[in-house]
Nucleic acid binder design. Structure first.
Lengths: 233, 233
DNA sequence: CAGTGGTCTAGACCACCCA
DNA sequence: GGGTGGTCTAGACCACTGC
């Protein structure tokens, strides 16, 4: 646990947050304005501003010019997840990471993928599959498509040595990401590679990546049975 | 789409971000220090500081005193989700929200729940089940436990009129939340209420809430078949 | 119109930590 | 030791919007 250093704006922020979570100020209540708070805390208005602005970013309060700052009715509306590279994630758990490249082929873009990526022209995709292991256990099955129109050099890369994620990070920047999470039933391929039964419920993460409006890659990650993605706020 | 107003720190931030995503500055590169940037942009150092600090918060750069500011190797590692109240979520999609209270009973705390909440003493829990509908379709099945040791007044509340989420928000503040997401197979109860087949894969969200180290409530939300939780970064 | 937050400045001191 | 970011101040002007 990292103990944040003492600083005036942090003191103000924690004090105000405490008043909110403890119920001194209830949902919908107006809190004092910045000038008053600055006087009360004996600091500059800018310091109060930073404290209250961060509380607003975190969803504790709502600010409006002239109307003032009010405590939000439904706090903690936001959950943030760190999205680690799978190898780091497994290493952090103390397991040995291993990556198995299953195969790759060049295909014309399937219709569903064109829709998902917002592509309207024809073009080739490089399709890859791989399994990520934690120690001896399959941890995640990866099915990836790389847009060869945007990244022709992917056709020449050797993904048996370097995983596609790592290769992509080193090769191209990206500006937009869409992620979604859902549940799916294990089909034969998934059941085989993740060592589970046909139809088993699996946690699924999908990620589409763009670089300045140009779709780069789509990846579908199926996790081992029972996987949970957890966060604390 | 909201167009953020023009402001100096935003201009600086967008300019720097563009240099990063466009690859002018590659992963690991050192970017100019705050004094240099302030001179280049013709603004105060505090303005640059805010811009770069926000980029650091968003995971684009890494800052270290004396060492300077460097572009992160794996950017966009964080995804944030808005967690709306289910009624608002459904209303926002243009559907009519309806809530059906199925039942409630007082139980002694199951062992798995004690472990999850970090409870060591014995105590009673109020257990509730409900279904949330979007128009005529079941959207989400809710199974909730409320810690009666912390909230004895829950035993007297009438949850057929007001959903437990709403009641809790109005009744007690909370300071810590743990959320997790996974996949599960529909059991008989879920299959019946969500109108799907036994064993169907369902997306599951679980949330445990504390108020100052005291566990308040645990809720398990199973979504209709095919539900996806999506975010753009 | 006037009160509130939003932003900016110029300068300052300090903590951290790499060299 | 010294360079870099972290924070703070006192004051200023501005933009928005409820009254």
């Amino acid at each position: 646990m990292v103990e944040p250093v003492k600083s005036a704006f942090r003191t103000v922020k924690e004090t105000l947050k405490h008043k909110i979570v403890a119920g001194d100020w209830g949902p919908g209540d107006l809190i004092p304005n910045e000038v008053e708070l600055a006087a009360a805390f004996g600091c500059a208005r800018a310091t109060v501003n930073r404290a209250v602005r961060e509380l607003a970013d975190e969803g504790y309060v709502e600010r409006k010019r002239k109307a003032g700052t009010r405590v939000r009715t439904a706090p903690l509306r936001r959950a943030a997840f760190e999205i680690p590279v799978v190898g780091d994630e497994i290493a952090a758990r103390g397991s040995v990471y291993r990556y198995e490249h299953l195969g790759q082929q060049t295909l014309s873009t399937p219709r569903w993928l064109k829709a998902r990526m917002g592509l309207d022209h024809h073009g080739k995709m490089l399709h890859l599959t791989a399994v990520h292991y934690a120690d001896a256990n399959p941890y995640q099955f990866e099915a990836r498509w790389i847009n060869l129109a945007a990244l022709p050099q992917a056709a020449e890369a050797d993904f048996s040595l370097m995983g596609p994620t790592e290769w992509l990070i080193k090769t191209i920047p990206f500006s937009n990401v869409e992620m979604s999470f859902s549940a799916t039933a294990a089909d034969e391929e998934l059941a085989h590679h993740l060592v589970c039964r046909l139809g088993d419920p699996l946690f699924l993460a999908e990620r589409t990546t763009w670089w300045q409006a140009e779709p780069i890659t789509y990846v579908r990650l199926a996790f081992q049975r029972g996987h949970k993605m957890t966060t604390r706020v």
